[in-house]
């Protein structure tokens, strides 16, 4: 994973990319001429009104949906199908209810090559790795619990572990904390902040919580209403490591205000 000297090289590159659902006359344009770059180890956040194509952007970069026009590369290679170096987590934790937290976290290793071929022989080692990961998000001792025995915040933590276990280049989070209460959400912000700092993983966070975006991200992109365009790229130059207290400071509030004005809507 890139640190220091290579930190500025682009991992993901979008050059005037458009995307639509459906074909022909009935196609719905979701994204219009979006250009952006995500550097190795960068934490970006994408904000915008609902239905602006934030999630579509995620599908695009992970290779789940092909672009209509424009050039999209990950690690310099054009994207033509699912990009395996991606880990995803959503608002709904989507844990499998018949698997324990540990087995849920192990799921990607049963699917991604080269891990899947060695899964049986390396199971112990993988399980230990998963337990360490669970421990790093505060879930030590919960590995054997089933999803319904965990609180919403814990489920979300496990879901993020599942997205990270195969050491993806990019972690994609689609409103991962949207369904949590305010306190749990802030707690998880800090968990994510520490995880990213420790692993130097590249993160793309889709959210409509502006405070969340500014607190966590190096760069915040603001998208317009559908079809989504990027109307603003905003570098957050607040020093790291950031403490939750920073969210009450003037510079922080100023950035949030500026972003809020760009999104518009009735006040």
């Amino acid at each position: 994973m890139a640190v220091g000297s290579t930190a500025l090289s682009a991992l993901v590159k979008l050059d005037r990319v458009s995307m639509a659902y459906g074909r022909g006359a009935t196609a719905v344009r979701a994204i219009e001429e979006v250009s952006l770059e995500i550097a190795h180890g960068e934490f970006i956040a994408v904000v915008g009104p609902s239905g602006c194509g934030k999630s579509s952007l995620m599908k695009l970069i992970s290779g789940l949906h092909p672009p209509l026009a424009g050039a999209l590369t990950v690690e310099g290679r054009p994207v033509r199908g699912p990009v395996k170096s991606v880990g995803m987590a959503f608002q709904n934790s989507n844990l499998l209810p018949w698997r324990s937290a540990l087995d849920n976290v192990l799921l990607p290793l049963e699917i991604v090559r080269p891990y899947r071929d060695e899964f049986r022989s390396n199971r112990k080692q993988y399980a230990q790795k998963a337990e360490e990961l669970l421990g790093s998000v505060g879930l030590a001792g919960f590995a054997k619990k089933f999803p319904w025995e965990l609180s919403g915040g814990m489920q979300q933590r496990a879901s993020i572990c599942r997205a990270l276990i195969h050491e993806p280049e990019i972690l994609m989070l689609d409103e991962p904390f949207g369904a949590l209460d305010a306190f749990t959400r802030e707690e998880l912000w800090c968990t994510l902040r520490d995880l990213q700092a420790a692993r130097k993983v590249t993160v793309m966070l889709v959210t409509h919580d502006l405070r969340e975006a500014v607190f966590l991200a190096d760069t915040v992109y603001v998208m317009s209403n559908r079809p989504g365009r990027i109307v603003k790229r905003c570098a957050v130059d607040i020093a790291r490591p950031r403490d939750l207290d920073v969210t009450y400071t003037q510079p922080f509030q100023d950035i949030v205000h500026e972003l809020r004005a760009l999104i518009g809507g009735r006040h």
Binding site: K59, L64, P82, I111, V112, R113
Partner: peptide, 20 residues
Amino acid sequence: ELEDVLRALGASKLDIMKKV
């Protein structure tokens, strides 16, 4: 969404059937 998670990992239709 769960299908997306697995497909992004390169899971085949058979994998998705077996695991989920």
